[in-house]
């Protein structure tokens, strides 16, 4: 009886259709009707016109082929990137851009972690900022002006709110501006874990000015800090910590404070009332560098400050600029 189906193509095709639809309905169509598939966090803001233009660029360049945008609820992943991703963060994401391959790092918590200037330098030439990175360079985006009319059409298609002025302003912005704006809003709906507190600001560096610690600290500094603060601490994307205006401030930077800022990033800096927090800020390194390493970096910073402080103001600067010995 059942064997007859193999000589009845129409009945057979219908039977196959039913078999195919069963799983599709339970796993794909039915969940759509459940509110758990349409959550929206209270803090979630729709994309602005500039951010959407940046997201379009992100899509166009296939960034999703190498970067994920979802932090899994795994201990080491939360330590590396930040709070794990919530369903309610993605209500405006059409399509979702979670990705399936992490050739580069996850970006779900990238927003606000670093200053705009860092992203500009990095997108334009990734290897200058992150040596040995395999990311393509996107400097050419700086020359591409946005097209307000098409961005407006995209905002309309998605039903996102905007003002005429916001659209008009796009004419002066580039694809690079847009991409950075998009990057900086990633993960905005989830409150960052405050790193302040839990640090002993009066703690004393156990390594002091030991030459071994300074040498080890120099290596760590070159790996993680030099990108923003300059090879010798003169500053760049981030502030200088050896400039006179800091060194001459009484009591600036106890060892414990330096430790706290390196481990906890900008949040700590803000909490202890230190100035100089530009757009974005400093990422916390506490999860990447063990405490001993951070203390060695502090030893190195101290050595640099002593070295700079002992020289004639202005003289070392010129030497530095002309590439003289140092």
């Amino acid at each position: 009886m059942a064997g007859k189906i193999y000589s009845k193509p129409i009945v057979f095709t219908l039977a196959v259709t039913v078999a195919v639809l069963a799983g599709s309905i339970v796993m794909m169509a039915y969940p759509m009707m459940r509110p758990e598939m349409h959550p929206k966090l209270e803090n979630l803001r729709p994309f602005t016109a500039l951010q959407l233009a940046g997201r379009d660029v992100y899509q166009r360049e296939g960034c999703v082929n190498c970067h994920t945008q979802t932090v899994r609820p795994l201990r080491t992943e939360v330590m590396r990137y930040g709070e794990y991703s919530k369903a309610g963060e993605f209500a405006y994401d059409r399509p979702f851009l979670w990705g399936s391959k992490r050739t580069g790092p996850d970006l779900a918590r990238e927003g606000g972690k670093r200053p705009d200037a860092w992203h500009l330098a990095h997108y334009a030439n990734p290897q200058v900022v992150v040596p040995r990175s395999n990311m393509p360079a996107y400097g050419w985006m700086k020359a591409n002006k946005l097209d307000p009319a098409s961005v407006k059409a995209h905002m309309d298609a998605l039903g996102l709110p905007y003002t005429a002025q916001q659209i008009a302003e796009l004419a002066t912005r580039t694809e690079m501006d847009a991409l950075i704006a998009y990057t900086q809003q990633l993960g905005h709906a989830v409150e960052k874990k405050k790193m302040a507190g839990g640090f002993d600001l009066a703690a004393v560096n156990p390594f002091g000015s030991s030459p071994q610690a300074i040498a080890a600290g120099a290596v760590l500094y070159a790996q993680s800090c030099a990108v923003c603060h300059g090879d010798e601490g003169h500053g760049g994307i981030g502030p200088s910590f050896i400039a006179k205006k800091f060194l001459e401030q009484p009591g600036y930077g106890t060892d414990g404070e330096y430790f706290a800022i390196i481990a906890g990033g900008s949040d700590v800096k803000k909490a202890i009332g230190r100035p100089g927090l530009a757009d974005g800020g400093m990422e916390p390194f506490g999860a990447q560098i063990p405490p001993d390493g951070i203390w060695r970096i502090v030893s190195f910073i101290r050595a640099q400050q002593l070295h700079e402080g002992s020289e004639q103001p202005g003289v070392e600067k010129r030497e530095h600029e002309t590439g003289g010995k140092h």
Binding site: M37, H38, A87, F90, A91, D93, R94, F96
Partner: peptide, 9 residues
């Protein structure tokens, strides 16, 4: 743009 958003997408 995908008709479906976020988790649903």
């Amino acid at each position: 743009y995908h008709l479906f958003a976020g988790v649903n997408s």
